[in-house]
Simulated assay, not measured.
Amino acid sequence: MLTRVNFAQLLFPDFSLILCGYLICRYTPLGRAVWDQVESLVYYFLFPVLLFHSIVKSPLDLGATSSLIAAGLLMGVSGIAMAYALPHLPWLGRHIDAREHAGAAQVAFRFNSFVALAIAEKLAGAQGLLLIAVLIGFCVPLFNVAAVWPMARHGEAHLGRALLRNPLIIATVSGLVANLLGLKVPGWLDPTLSRIGAASLALGLMSAGAGMQFGTLGQAKALAVSVLAIRHLLLPLVAFGLARLLRLDPAQTAVLLAFSALPTASSCYVLASRMGYNGAYVAGLVTLSTLLGVASLSFALVALR
Score class of each variant (00 low, 15 high):
residue 124 A to I: 02
residue 124 A to T: 02
residue 124 A to K: 03
residue 125 G to C: 08
residue 126 A to M: 12
residue 128 G to N: 06
residue 128 G to R: 01
residue 128 G to P: 02
residue 128 G to Q: 03
residue 129 L to W: 00
residue 130 L to D: 00
residue 130 L to R: 12
residue 130 L to N: 06
residue 131 L to R: 00
residue 131 L to S: 06
residue 132 I to A: 07
residue 133 A to E: 06
residue 133 A to R: 00
residue 134 V to F: 04
residue 134 V to Q: 05
residue 135 L to N: 04
residue 135 L to R: 08
residue 136 I to W: 05
residue 137 G to T: 09
residue 137 G to M: 06
residue 138 F to S: 04
residue 138 F to A: 03
residue 138 F to E: 05
residue 138 F to W: 14
residue 138 F to V: 09
residue 139 C to V: 14
residue 139 C to R: 00
residue 139 C to K: 01
residue 139 C to A: 14
residue 141 P to S: 09
residue 141 P to E: 08
residue 141 P to G: 07
residue 141 P to N: 10
residue 141 P to Y: 06
residue 142 L to V: 15
residue 142 L to A: 10
residue 142 L to W: 04
residue 143 F to M: 13
residue 143 F to N: 05
residue 144 N to W: 04
residue 144 N to Q: 07
residue 145 V to M: 08
residue 146 A to W: 01
residue 146 A to L: 05
residue 147 A to Q: 02
residue 148 V to T: 13
residue 148 V to P: 00
residue 149 W to Y: 14
residue 149 W to F: 14
residue 150 P to G: 08
residue 151 M to E: 12
residue 151 M to A: 08
residue 151 M to K: 01
residue 151 M to Q: 07
residue 152 A to V: 02
residue 153 R to I: 09
residue 153 R to E: 12
residue 153 R to V: 12
residue 153 R to N: 07
residue 154 H to F: 01
residue 154 H to V: 01
residue 155 G to T: 07
residue 156 E to M: 03
residue 156 E to G: 09
residue 157 A to K: 02
residue 157 A to Q: 00
residue 158 H to M: 04
residue 158 H to L: 03
residue 159 L to A: 11
residue 159 L to Q: 11
residue 161 R to N: 10
residue 161 R to V: 03
residue 162 A to D: 05
residue 163 L to H: 12
residue 163 L to V: 09
residue 163 L to K: 13
residue 164 L to Q: 12
residue 165 R to A: 15
residue 166 N to A: 05
residue 167 P to F: 13
residue 167 P to N: 12
residue 168 L to Q: 06
residue 168 L to R: 05
residue 168 L to H: 11
residue 170 I to S: 01
residue 171 A to M: 02
residue 172 T to W: 02
residue 173 V to W: 01
residue 173 V to C: 02
residue 174 S to F: 06
residue 174 S to R: 05
residue 174 S to I: 01
residue 175 G to W: 02
residue 176 L to Y: 01
residue 176 L to V: 06
residue 177 V to S: 03
residue 178 A to N: 07
residue 178 A to R: 00
residue 178 A to Y: 10
residue 179 N to D: 13
residue 179 N to T: 09
residue 179 N to F: 00
residue 179 N to K: 04
residue 180 L to H: 10
residue 180 L to F: 10
residue 180 L to P: 01
residue 181 L to A: 14
residue 182 G to H: 14
residue 183 L to I: 15
residue 183 L to Y: 15
residue 183 L to W: 15
residue 183 L to N: 12
residue 183 L to H: 15
residue 184 K to Y: 13
residue 184 K to N: 14
residue 184 K to D: 15
residue 184 K to E: 15
residue 185 V to R: 01
residue 186 P to A: 12
residue 186 P to G: 06
residue 186 P to C: 09
residue 186 P to W: 14
residue 187 G to H: 15
residue 188 W to C: 11
residue 188 W to T: 14
residue 189 L to D: 10
residue 189 L to C: 11
residue 189 L to A: 13
residue 189 L to R: 12
residue 190 D to T: 10
residue 191 P to G: 11
residue 191 P to Q: 11
residue 191 P to N: 13
residue 191 P to T: 12
residue 192 T to D: 08
residue 192 T to V: 12
residue 193 L to A: 08
residue 193 L to H: 03
residue 195 R to K: 08
residue 195 R to I: 10
residue 196 I to C: 08
residue 196 I to P: 00
residue 197 G to C: 03
residue 197 G to K: 00
residue 197 G to S: 09
residue 198 A to L: 08
residue 198 A to E: 15
